[in-house]
Nucleic acid binder design. Structure first.
Length: 223
DNA sequence: GTACAGATTGAG
DNA sequence: TCAATCTGTACT
């Protein structure tokens, strides 16, 4: 089952959509190949009340204007001058809310077939496969963070405003995976302590329980 | 025009 | 623990 997700999926209320995104597949058409990943970790930004959101206070800028559209568009921006961050605009037109994709479980063709010859199974979480230039790449470190995720999917500024329901180079699919709510962990968002006690402690980061592909952010302060 | 901080990452 | 690297935003 491979069903492309349509507008009605993306216009769901943001917190509901965030939970529904877990287990969905993101597909990137790149040079006649498909780069695929299963979404395993997301984070909600619910402006204009949310102090951590780029649309806090109803602010509209050239950068964030896309989040005022209805759900299904891509909001992508550069962070720290070098890392792209992929967000999916959610909910209704005029509601500036979005969901940051933080980690994917990469789906690589013939992963298991190749395992016998080229893969080395070391510790529990170090599965490796030969990358583009013959170099060994750790699958678990390929898309376990918002910046690395964009690198894996080969995304850049040109995807700003891309419509996930129509685009020929990137879209989302339902492949029949269902994540039970008891297997979804809600946690504090990452890297937004500047938003103050109330907003930074909201548990709007969601990830699949026990999934080894989620990001492991360093603890900068007490959790 | 200028100053500054940031929804991160990988190296030391 | 720290620097890389650039753009939006809020000032002068």
């Amino acid at each position: 089952m491979r069903k492309r997700l349509k507008r009605d999926f993306f216009t769901q209320p943001t917190l509901k959509l965030a939970n529904d995104l877990l287990g969905k597949f993101i597909v990137r058409n790149w040079r006649c190949k498909k780069i695929v990943g299963e979404i395993v970790e997301v984070e909600v930004y619910k402006g204009p009340k949310d102090r951590a959101s780029h649309s806090f206070g109803g602010k509209i800028t050239k950068r964030n204007r896309i989040v005022y559209k209805e759900g299904g568009y891509i909001y992508i921006y550069l962070c720290y001058g070098m890392h792209w961050q992929l967000n999916i605009v959610s909910f209704l037109k005029g509601k500036p809310e979005c969901i940051l994709l933080r980690a994917l479980e990469p789906k690589i063709n013939n992963l298991h077939k190749k395992t016998n010859e080229n893969f080395t199974n070391r510790k529990s979480y170090t599965l490796k496969f030969p990358g583009a230039h013959g170099k060994l790449v750790d699958v678990y470190n390929l898309a376990n963070g918002p910046g690395k995720l964009c690198k894996y999917l080969k995304l850049n500024k040109s995807f700003y405003g891309e419509d996930l329901t129509r685009s020929k180079r990137i879209w989302l699919e339902d492949r029949g995976v269902r994540i039970k709510s008891s297997n979804i962990i809600a946690a504090k968002r990452v890297g937004i302590d500047y938003a103050g006690y109330y907003w930074s402690r909201r548990k709007w980061r969601f990830y699949i329980k026990n999934n080894p592909f989620v990001s492991f952010p360093r603890l900068t302060s007490k959790s």
